[in-house]
Amino acid sequence: MSKKKELAAQLAAQAEARRAAAAPYTPNAADFQWVGPDASSREAIARPSMSFFQDAMRRLFSSKKAIVCIALILLIVVFCVFYPMISPFTEQEQHVTHSNAAMFSVCPDTGKMHILGTDTLGRDLMTRAAMGGRLSLAMALTAVVVNGVIGLVYGGVSGYVGGWLDNIMMRAVEIINGIPYLILLIVLMMVLDTGVSSMILAYILVGWTGIARMTRGQIVSLKEQEFVIAAKAMGAKPRRILFKHLIPNLLSVIIVQMTMAIPGMIFNESFLSFIGLGVPVPASSWGQLANDGFDRFRLYPSQMMIPAVLICVTMLSFNLLGDALRDAFDPKLRR
């Protein structure tokens, strides 16, 4: 009997063990250990996060053409700004015994070298070219920046407010635009006193319409975009929409336009100088130098070639830089 009971208990224990082994396992976090790749590293963002402008700049600096242009522009600017400081000659200094000198000739008065030679009055051409560059570039930059601001405000108001105000403002621009730019510039230059400031004023009075039209067109099309409507639906104030959504989107177009306007301004200056409406005589600008050089071009070609090369290289660099900037800012090319 007892032997029978013992056997039964044994069998029961065996069955219990079998049942326990077959029962489904309930998972327990403590039993597990992560052996795969690190979760945070898997989801880590490899590229640095960058804003639109950083991205555009990265693309700009990855183009060889743009780097060459920027380098050329910097070189010319550094030459114009610093050369007059280290030059042994001043802009107006005349060495009459040493006029129309060739390049790399030594001045008998001072024993110093005229690297680019001298003009008819014996003035050092290299110093004059640098001083002329200061004036030409400063005038172009000032005019373009002021034009940009005026155009941005005018076009922005016209496009943003819309309605009858837009109608009137744009009709005014259209009528001003109907008059050829250079003719208006010439007429203004005749009325204003000669001088650098009135030249800049004349550029500004006629030059803002292009950027105003462009800004207005951009604002009108941006206003209808989904992200602006979404911002409006979420209750963004007009101020926020203007500064957060409209202006940043506009800026790239305006920057490209302004870069492209600089060669135009340099051209205008040299054109006006060439027909005798340039900066007043003792001062030098690139256009003035080219004009002076042209009179003696057949005998001393270098006197015209130096300012001509400076004008062309600067205009070329700004044009190419404008192209590169446009490509860099184009969101369609963004990768």
């Binding site: 060669p263 054109f271 060439f274 080219a290 042209f294 001509a308 062309c312 205009m315």
Partner: peptide, 21 residues
């Protein structure tokens, strides 16, 4: 690109000098 970067008086003067003279 040369055409947009060279004012007409420079082109004119260069042509006159090299081709004319």
């Amino acid at each position: 690109l040369l055409g947009v970067s060279m004012p007409s008086f420079i082109i004119g003067a260069l042509l006159q000098y090299f081709l004319g003279l």
